[in-house]
Structures are given as structure tokens and as C-alpha cells.
């Protein structure tokens, strides 16, 4: 029924996804149809397993729909957190816990609060990155593509990377600009690329 839910460990890199197909329905894992899945468990071991399952579900759901960030309040109304057939929904507080766990080292840092902490009272009600690929992994993918297409030394615009025809077959095609920036910063820090330009018209040169 689902290959995506079968890998319980979130730190392992998920296999390459099927070509982006937003129109096909996401195959939910069996847990999704299990009512207790929507109540966060108090028992440590069960809870850990449950958080793993949620983490896997969120990542694969986001990859399927090519979502790079979630706004929790909106997402709670989506299929991801709301099983309409069961009439069960993960509570906002529990969803926050799931994301917080994913963001921590225990969850493999598979998520990150956009505003830094995700705490209430900062105006932003929980918008978060979902790293079904971590920035380092994105950086690795981009670097590998640059290598493969022999474009070292050339200058590419960020728009070209994300939306250009040349990257259409690549996974990072259509990537969120902010996340792309983050990923490229990784390369910059390693000294493998340099970003220049301003605001909308940024370019990058790979060394």
C-alpha cells in the first residue's frame, strides 16, 4: 500500500520520488486509518514510535505534494492532519509537538520553524520548513547536477536553477526560493560557490 511509510527512520534519505504528480492521490500509510494515531501517546516508547510515524507521513506527504513548508493552522485542515473519513484530526498542540520533535536532533532535524522557535506569542502561528531533503542534501543534489552538466565556473541565476527548463527533470525544480537560498548558503560556506547580485537578481557561481 505504501512504500513511503515503510521506512520508519526519518534520518535516512528517502528514495527518489516519483515524478511530481500533484493530481494523483497520496497513498496514506495504514497508520493513518488507525484512530489512536491521532492522539499523542503519553507512554514514551509508544510516543516515540508514533512521532516517527508522523514524521515519515509528513515528509512523504510533503514530497508527494512538493510542499517545502507547512503553515500548521492551514495544514490542520488538510488531509495530512485530518482524516475526514475517521472524523479524527490531530490537535494543534499535538501537531506542534510533532514538528518540534522533527526539528530536534531526535527527529533528525527534518523540520525547522520559520520564525526560529515556533513558540506562540511571536505572531506567527507555526510556519515551518519540512525537510524531506535537508539543505545540505539539496546542496549536494545541486552540486551533483552542476557537476553532471559541466557547469562549474559558469554563472547561473537562482531563478534559472529553480524554474529553468534545464532543471525540469531535477528534483529541486520548482523549489522554494528561500529554501534554495538556504541550501546554496551551505555550498557558499564550504567555499564551493559564491552568490552575488541583489534581491531578485541573484546569481551563483560554482567553483
Amino acid at each position: 500500500m505504501s512504500t513511503t511509510a515503510a521506512s520508519p527512520h526519518p534520518t535516512s534519505i528517502p528514495p527518489p520520488p516519483p515524478p511530481p504528480s500533484t493530481n494523483t492521490a497520496f497513498p496514506f500509510p495504514p497508520h493513518y486509518h488507525y484512530p489512536p494515531f491521532f492522539s499523542l501517546q503519553p507512554t514514551a516508547s509508544t510516543r516515540l514510535s508514533q512521532l516517527h510515524s508522523w514524521s515519515t507521513l509528513i515528509q512523504s506527504y510533503c514530497r508527494h505534494h512538493r510542499l517545502f513548508a507547512l503553515s500548521l493552522v492551514d495544514a490542520l485542515d488538510s488531509d495530512l492532519f485530518w482524516n475526514r473519513k475517521l472524523g479524527k484530526r490531530l490537535a494543534l498542540r499535538d501537531a506542534r509537538e510533532v514538528i518540534a520533535w522533527m526539528a530536534g536532533t531526535e527527529g533528525g532535524e527534518r523540520a525547522e520553524w520559520v520564525d526560529g522557535t515556533g513558540k506562540k506569542g511571536r505572531g506567527e502561528e507555526g510556519r515551518c520548513w519540512v525537510y524531506w531533503r535537508r539543505p545540505e542534501e539539496w546542496a549536494g543534489l545541486i552540486e551533483a547536477w552542476v557537476d553532471a552538466t559541466a557547469q562549474r565556473g559558469t554563472v547561473l541565476t537562482l531563478y534559472e536553477l529553480a524554474e529553468g527548463d534545464a532543471t525540469r527533470s531535477q528534483e529541486f525544480h520548482g523549489m522554494d526560493m528561500e529554501l534554495l537560498q538556504k541550501s546554496l548558503q551551505v555550498l557558499v560556506k564550504k567555499g564551493k560557490a559564491q552568490i552575488f547580485g541583489s534581491d531578485d537578481q541573484q546569481g551563483i557561481k560554482f567553483f
Binding site: P30, H31, Y34, P35, P36, S39, Q41, P42, T43, T46
Partner: peptide, 19 residues
Amino acid sequence: GAVCREQALDGLRYWENWL
């Protein structure tokens, strides 16, 4: 870890732990 809970509107239910 033998059972797990489902917090529902009509109260707490216990399930076999499939989590």
C-alpha cells in the same frame, strides 16, 4: 506498550498498540 489510547470526543478508548 501493550495498548495505546485514543482521545476522542466521547472519552478515552484503549486500542491494541499498532503504533
